[in-house]
Protein backbone atom coordinates (compact mmCIF):
# COMPACT_ATOMS: atom_id res chain seq x y z
CA UNK A 1 0.00 0.00 0.00
CA UNK A 2 1.05 3.49 -0.51
CA UNK A 3 1.80 5.83 2.28
CA UNK A 4 -0.94 7.83 3.96
CA UNK A 5 -2.25 10.56 1.83
CA UNK A 6 -1.22 13.78 3.43
CA UNK A 7 0.73 16.00 1.17
CA UNK A 8 3.79 17.75 2.31
CA UNK A 9 2.81 21.17 3.54
CA UNK A 10 5.59 23.04 1.79
CA UNK A 11 5.54 22.43 -1.90
CA UNK A 12 8.27 24.48 -3.46
CA UNK A 13 7.98 25.49 -7.03
CA UNK A 14 10.69 26.96 -9.15
CA UNK A 15 10.37 29.10 -12.18
CA UNK A 16 9.71 26.97 -15.22
CA UNK A 17 11.97 28.97 -17.50
CA UNK A 18 14.83 28.58 -15.09
CA UNK A 19 14.34 24.84 -15.05
CA UNK A 20 14.04 24.54 -18.82
CA UNK A 21 17.09 26.71 -19.40
CA UNK A 22 19.08 24.74 -16.85
CA UNK A 23 18.23 21.51 -18.60
CA UNK A 24 19.14 23.08 -21.93
CA UNK A 25 22.49 24.16 -20.59
CA UNK A 26 23.09 20.66 -19.27
CA UNK A 27 22.41 19.05 -22.62
CA UNK A 28 24.42 21.66 -24.49
CA UNK A 29 27.37 21.07 -22.18
CA UNK A 30 27.12 17.32 -22.63
CA UNK A 31 27.12 17.87 -26.38
CA UNK A 32 30.33 19.84 -26.01
CA UNK A 33 31.90 17.17 -23.85
CA UNK A 34 31.00 14.14 -25.92
CA UNK A 35 31.35 13.88 -29.63
CA UNK A 36 29.05 10.95 -30.18
CA UNK A 37 25.32 11.37 -29.79
CA UNK A 38 25.13 7.91 -28.29
CA UNK A 39 27.40 8.98 -25.46
CA UNK A 40 25.29 12.02 -24.73
CA UNK A 41 22.15 9.90 -24.74
CA UNK A 42 23.80 7.39 -22.47
CA UNK A 43 24.84 9.99 -19.93
CA UNK A 44 21.46 11.66 -19.96
CA UNK A 45 19.90 8.29 -19.33
CA UNK A 46 22.33 7.57 -16.53
CA UNK A 47 21.62 10.89 -14.85
CA UNK A 48 17.92 10.32 -15.25
CA UNK A 49 18.24 6.89 -13.71
CA UNK A 50 19.90 8.37 -10.66
CA UNK A 51 17.21 10.99 -10.42
CA UNK A 52 14.47 8.42 -10.89
CA UNK A 53 15.64 6.13 -8.13
CA UNK A 54 15.35 9.03 -5.71
CA UNK A 55 12.37 10.73 -7.20
CA UNK A 56 10.17 7.69 -6.82
CA UNK A 57 10.33 8.04 -3.04
CA UNK A 58 9.22 11.60 -3.28
CA UNK A 59 6.50 10.63 -5.68
CA UNK A 60 5.12 7.85 -3.50
CA UNK A 61 5.23 10.04 -0.45
CA UNK A 62 3.55 12.96 -2.03
CA UNK A 63 0.95 11.32 -4.19
CA UNK A 64 -1.63 9.03 -2.77
CA UNK A 65 -1.47 6.30 -5.35
CA UNK A 66 -2.78 2.90 -4.43
CA UNK A 67 -1.34 -0.39 -5.42
CA UNK A 68 -1.50 -1.04 -9.13
CA UNK A 69 -2.79 -4.33 -10.46
CA UNK A 70 -1.78 -4.15 -14.05
CA UNK A 71 0.76 -2.59 -16.33
CA UNK A 72 -1.82 -0.32 -17.84
CA UNK A 73 -2.71 0.98 -14.41
CA UNK A 74 0.94 1.78 -13.78
CA UNK A 75 1.22 3.59 -17.07
CA UNK A 76 -1.86 5.61 -16.29
CA UNK A 77 -0.42 6.61 -12.94
CA UNK A 78 2.81 7.67 -14.61
CA UNK A 79 0.98 9.67 -17.23
CA UNK A 80 -1.73 11.22 -15.17
CA UNK A 81 -0.13 11.66 -11.78
CA UNK A 82 3.63 11.67 -12.16
CA UNK A 83 3.89 13.70 -15.34
CA UNK A 84 1.24 16.08 -14.09
CA UNK A 85 3.05 16.51 -10.81
CA UNK A 86 6.54 17.05 -12.13
CA UNK A 87 6.10 18.48 -15.59
CA UNK A 88 2.58 19.82 -15.58
CA UNK A 89 1.51 17.88 -18.63
CA UNK A 90 -0.61 14.77 -19.12
CA UNK A 91 0.58 12.59 -21.96
CA UNK A 92 -1.88 10.24 -23.59
CA UNK A 93 -1.35 6.51 -23.34
CA UNK A 94 -1.54 3.89 -26.05
CA UNK A 95 -0.89 0.18 -25.93
CA UNK A 96 0.61 -1.67 -28.83
CA UNK A 97 0.64 -5.40 -28.40
CA UNK A 98 -1.74 -8.03 -27.19
CA UNK A 99 0.39 -9.17 -24.26
CA UNK A 100 -0.11 -5.66 -22.90
CA UNK A 101 3.38 -4.92 -21.78
CA UNK A 102 4.35 -2.37 -24.42
CA UNK A 103 3.00 1.10 -23.97
CA UNK A 104 3.55 4.51 -25.40
CA UNK A 105 3.29 7.86 -23.73
CA UNK A 106 2.47 10.47 -26.30
CA UNK A 107 3.48 13.99 -25.39
CA UNK A 108 1.77 16.59 -27.49
CA UNK A 109 3.73 19.30 -25.80
CA UNK A 110 7.16 18.91 -24.34
CA UNK A 111 7.97 21.63 -21.85
CA UNK A 112 11.58 20.53 -21.58
CA UNK A 113 12.22 21.18 -25.24
CA UNK A 114 10.23 24.36 -25.39
CA UNK A 115 13.09 26.62 -26.36
CA UNK A 116 14.81 24.21 -28.68
CA UNK A 117 13.99 24.90 -32.28
CA UNK A 118 15.86 22.05 -33.85
CA UNK A 119 18.71 19.75 -33.06
CA UNK A 120 22.10 21.23 -33.86
CA UNK A 121 23.71 20.21 -37.13
CA UNK A 122 25.38 16.83 -37.00
CA UNK A 123 23.50 15.79 -33.90
CA UNK A 124 20.62 14.02 -35.52
CA UNK A 125 20.73 11.00 -33.23
CA UNK A 126 20.56 13.04 -30.04
CA UNK A 127 17.58 12.30 -27.79
CA UNK A 128 17.21 15.69 -26.19
CA UNK A 129 14.91 14.53 -23.42
CA UNK A 130 16.57 11.20 -22.75
CA UNK A 131 16.70 12.20 -19.10
CA UNK A 132 12.98 11.45 -18.91
CA UNK A 133 13.58 7.88 -20.09
CA UNK A 134 16.18 7.39 -17.42
CA UNK A 135 13.91 8.81 -14.74
CA UNK A 136 11.05 6.50 -15.65
CA UNK A 137 13.36 3.51 -15.86
CA UNK A 138 14.96 4.29 -12.52
CA UNK A 139 11.66 4.94 -10.80
CA UNK A 140 10.13 1.72 -12.08
CA UNK A 141 13.15 -0.23 -11.05
CA UNK A 142 12.80 1.01 -7.50
CA UNK A 143 9.32 -0.49 -7.38
CA UNK A 144 10.69 -3.77 -8.75
CA UNK A 145 9.65 -3.40 -12.30
CA UNK A 146 12.26 -3.81 -14.99
CA UNK A 147 11.43 -1.79 -18.05
CA UNK A 148 12.91 -0.60 -21.27
CA UNK A 149 12.25 3.05 -21.88
CA UNK A 150 13.18 4.74 -25.14
CA UNK A 151 12.12 7.53 -27.39
CA UNK A 152 10.17 6.25 -30.35
CA UNK A 153 9.35 9.60 -31.87
CA UNK A 154 10.69 13.02 -31.17
CA UNK A 155 9.28 16.33 -32.26
CA UNK A 156 12.78 17.67 -32.57
CA UNK A 157 13.50 15.03 -35.17
CA UNK A 158 10.61 16.07 -37.33
CA UNK A 159 7.90 13.79 -35.99
CA UNK A 160 4.53 15.26 -35.23
CA UNK A 161 4.50 14.19 -31.59
CA UNK A 162 6.97 13.06 -28.97
CA UNK A 163 6.49 9.44 -28.03
CA UNK A 164 8.13 7.57 -25.19
CA UNK A 165 7.94 3.81 -25.47
CA UNK A 166 7.86 1.75 -22.30
CA UNK A 167 8.28 -2.01 -22.46
CA UNK A 168 7.95 -4.01 -19.27
CA UNK A 169 10.44 -6.80 -19.38
CA UNK A 170 9.26 -9.30 -16.80
CA UNK A 171 5.88 -10.59 -15.91
CA UNK A 172 4.82 -9.20 -12.60
CA UNK A 173 6.17 -11.45 -9.94
CA UNK A 174 3.54 -11.75 -7.26
CA UNK A 175 6.04 -12.02 -4.44
CA UNK A 176 8.00 -9.00 -5.46
CA UNK A 177 4.86 -7.18 -6.28
CA UNK A 178 3.62 -7.55 -2.75
CA UNK A 179 6.44 -5.66 -1.25
CA UNK A 180 5.32 -2.22 -1.99
CA UNK A 181 3.98 -0.18 -4.79
Amino acid sequence: MSRPAHKRPEYHKINKDLFVLTYGALVAQLCKDYEKDEDVNKYLDKMGYNIGTRLVEDFLARSCVRRCHSYSEIINIIAQVAFKMYLGITPSVTCHNSSRNEFSLILHKNPLAEFVEELPAGRSALCYCNLLCGIIRGALEMVHLAANVTFLQDRLKGDSVTEIGITFLKKLDEKKYRRKK
Binding site: L21, Y23, G24, A28, C31, F115, V116, E117, E118, L119
Partner: peptide
Protein backbone atom coordinates in the same frame (compact mmCIF):
# COMPACT_ATOMS: atom_id res chain seq x y z
CA UNK B 1 18.66 33.44 -27.08
CA UNK B 2 16.81 30.87 -25.00
CA UNK B 3 17.69 28.09 -27.41
CA UNK B 4 20.34 26.06 -25.58
CA UNK B 5 22.12 25.26 -28.81
CA UNK B 6 22.60 28.87 -29.80
CA UNK B 7 25.82 30.43 -28.62
CA UNK B 8 25.34 34.08 -27.76
CA UNK B 9 27.31 36.17 -30.19
CA UNK B 10 26.97 33.84 -33.13
CA UNK B 11 25.09 34.78 -36.27
CA UNK B 12 21.42 34.04 -35.95
CA UNK B 13 20.45 31.15 -38.17
CA UNK B 14 17.21 30.25 -36.51
CA UNK B 15 14.42 29.33 -38.89
CA UNK B 16 11.69 30.69 -36.65
Amino acid sequence: MCNPFYNPGDRIQSRA
